[in-house]
Design a protein around this nucleic acid. Structure first.
Length: 463
RNA sequence: GGCGACAUCGCCAAGUGGUAAGGCAGAGGUCUGCAAAAUCUCCAUCCCCAGUUCGAAUCUGGGUGUCGCCUCCA
């Protein structure tokens, strides 16, 4: 039985999809005004794992992720860069696609943009207006939160509690301070679309309603995900719009990942501790980043720092060390698991079934690593254990380039040269010319080739 | 002011009633010219206090501390 923590009820619940063996999931994607940062990357990676896991469990998954390409931040960036909002959006959409691919994140089934569905958003707002949940003031259209008696049920907020001490913007046009914008009247120089309320653009909270329902094909779908900060107001506001019209929640399960801190502090531009995924990818392997995310439960906050990345890198290396040790060849995978391995697989499934306990799942992988490395085990058992390690690892998004990572291929000519160098070094060793032999080893290491003096002679591997 | 989360070895982190997984780091052994790699072994009673229970890291109450949301934000 799979359990998922549902923000809506603030507890773990059994996951029952609307249609048997089919999961319809939607996760909020990026606003394309910049390269996305490490904090954005967490939900992208996590929901990628969620999707992979459902598939591993034999379910058909439809995964939709939107791209917000209409937004104040994009407009501001365009002004700053003396560009147009279309150009900015285009640039960062392609960067987004590129970077997520580098992170080993599979493309969602659909990745629609807000600008694709302006007509449908207008239709949605018109329906809300017709039912009396939306009102227009001078070209702006607002959603009236007081009209929807369940407003606040997702985030657990009562709108009237928000007044005292809260930082609520003063907007004399709003009937209630918590009312949110559905349609924004255009200001000079902004992108505009024609609407019944004049020229303007949609507010942020409507696009997800339209896109999710459209591409998932139903008023209610199974899972809606995003960062915790989206619970309020974004998801609350999405749900309010949908529920007012359909009298059903937008999604049955709402999943929210925790934040990333940078060396114990909140990431922010003013603290100058703002890291884009693109920059981090220059220093760390995608799998190191993935391990870092998955080493802690997705709902917990996680701290990003140099040490933790180093630890993650070493840990991931361990997987490959084990596979290299037995010269693992994925093409020979048999997956004929022994009983004890099947129980390990079961352990992995139990962990993941329990609200995606990836940290526990990783520990099962290390149990397997231990078996693979154990020279006392039968080689065949070690190989089959490696099959399982790879199978489970792939569920978490590891081992996407297994061949490349395991290969020790320099090309014929280079290998011949290397052999000559090793022979020369061995002669130096025989002469006890340690200075020379150590120098050769150090120089080769600088080029990424690690020499290993073993009982059976000198071996080498690409680092 | 309102709402919520969290507190487990030096660090990271599982564990939600039955006697503390795993990773990193560290110590020691084997191997070795040295190094690396590999391998074996060792390494915590769970923020504080009170309570429930045969039994609690796990449940309840009260502290203390850290953090998040309430404003654009993953």
């Amino acid at each position: 039985m799979m359990k998922i923590y549902n923000t809506l009820n603030r507890k773990k619940e059994e996951f029952v999809p609307i249609e048997a063996n089919k999961v319809k999931m939607y996760a909020c994607g990026p606003t394309v005004y910049n390269y996305f940062h490490i904090g954005n990357a967490r939900p992208f990676v996590f929901f990628d794992v969620v999707r992979r896991y459902f598939e591993f469990r034999g379910m058909e998954v439809v995964y939709v992720q939107n791209i917000t390409d209409i937004d104040d931040k994009i407009i501001n960036k365009a002004i700053e860069d003396k560009s147009t909002f279309q150009q900015i959006a285009k640039k960062y959409i392609s960067a987004f696609v590129e970077d997520t691919a580098k992170l080993g994140i599979r493309q969602p089934d659909y990745q629609p943009k807000a600008s694709d569905v302006i007509g449908e958003i207008i239709k949605l707002i018109k329906q809300l207006e017709k039912k009396g949940y939306a009102y227009e003031v001078d070209g702006d259209v607002y959603f009236s939160v007081e009209m929807f008696k369940d407003y606040g049920k997702l985030s657990g907020k009562k709108i009237d509690d928000q007044k005292a001490g809260a930082r609520v913007e003063a907007n004399i046009n709003k009937r209630h301070p918590a009312d949110f914008t559905l349609w924004k009247k255009a200001k000079a120089g902004e992108p505009v679309w024609k609407s019944p309320w004049g020229e303007g653009r949609p507010g942020w909270h409507s696009e997800c309603v339209v896109l999710s329902q459209k591409y998932l094909g139903s008023e209610t779908f199974d899972i809606h995900g995003g960062g915790v900060d989206l619970v309020f107001p974004h998801h609350e506001n999405e749900n309010a719009q949908a529920e007012v019209l359909s009298h059903k929640p937008l999604a049955n399960y709402w999943m929210h990942n925790g934040f990333i801190n940078i060396e114990g502090e909140k990431m922010s531009k003013s603290l100058d501790n703002f890291f884009t995924a693109r920059d981090i990818l220059k220093e760390h392997d995608a799998e190191t980043i993935r391990f870092f995310f998955l080493s802690k439960h997705y709902r917990s906050p996680i701290d990003f720092n140099r040490e933790i990345m180093q630890e993650s890198e070493t840990a991931v290396k361990n997987f490959y060390t084990a596979l290299k040790l037995i010269k693992y060849d994925a093409s020979r995978a048999k997956k004929e698991y022994s009983e004890s391995l099947l129980s390990k697989k079961e352990e992995f499934i139990t962990a993941m079934d329990d609200d995606f306990n990836t940290a526990k799942a990783l520990s099962v992988m290390f149990d397997l690593v231990k078996i693979i490395k154990n020279p006392k085990e039968e080689l065949e058992e070690r190989e089959i254990t490696a099959d399982l390690l790879v199978e489970l690892g792939r569920v978490l998004g590891f081992f996407s380039d297994l061949e490349g990572k395991l290969s020790n291929d320099l090309g014929d000519f280079s290998e011949k040269l290397l052999k000559i160098i090793i022979n020369l070094r061995n002669q130096a060793k025989i002469d006890k010319n340690w200075a020379l032999s150590d120098m050769i080893r150090v120089e080769l290491l600088k080029e990424g080739i690690q020499l290993l003096d073993t009982k059976d002679g000198t071996k080498w591997e690409i680092k």
